[in-house]
Each structure stands twice: as C-alpha cells, then as structure tokens.
Design a protein around this nucleic acid. Sequence first.
DNA 1: ATCGTGACTGGGA
DNA 2: ATCCCAGCCACGA
Length: 109
Amino acid sequence: MMTDNSSKDFFGNVFGVVKKIPKGKVTTYGAIAKFLGAGASARTVGWALNKTVGTDLPAHRVVNRNGELTGKLHFSTPNMMKELLLAEGINFNNDKVDLEKHLWLPEID
DNA sequence: ATCGTGACTGGGA
DNA sequence: ATCCCAGCCACGA
C-alpha cells in the first residue's frame, strides 16, 4: 500500500515501482516515467534512483531504452550492476540487457 | 523566486 | 548503421 510517503512525491512513486520489479526482469526509465504520468521525465527517474543507491531498491533492474546499463557507474563499482543482473538470470547481449526477454512494465497493483 | 543539472528519449544529419 | 541536437520534468542551491 502506498500509505507511506509514496504517491506524495515523484520519488516515492519511483521507489514504489522499482520495488515491484520482479526478479529476473528489468524496466526502462521511460516506462516508469510514463507509468507515473510524467511521460517525458525519464531523466528525473534516473536522478531519483541516484538517491536510492545504498538502499533496498533494486536500481540495477532499471536500464535505459536500449537495455544499456547506463547507471552502472553510479553503483559502488561499475561491474556490480551487471553482476547483479546476471545473478538474477538476466541474459545479456554483449553489454546490453535483452529487453525482448526481460522487459517488465509497471502496472497498477 | 530563478538557474543549472541529470542513471533519458526521440528525431534528424 | 552511428553521432548530434533539442525537449522534457523534478530537485538542489
């Protein structure tokens, strides 16, 4: 439930969605932004996730539209993000996530 | 209050 | 195919 600070701030919404990403799946910034109604504020989504680093939020499951681990440099180590995804059974196409297989879209719970 | 920045996206050259 | 440019929203100073 979103009785917490969720749905109050854009950040809260992002956190809630990211937490709902199933294991072995990934989503894109644009998908989250669009789900929140912002649509074009995909940049703000990533920026919000920047604050989530060090929290329980699986930010490593969020990639850009091309499936690239754009935020890998924001993690503790650049290789951690890919390692985490690999550990979840996500397939990689070179250094990009196979969105066709693992793309997950947020939905109203 | 204004200005600048950003883990993005889409379209054009 | 790749590279560059402009637009978009939210937050910090």
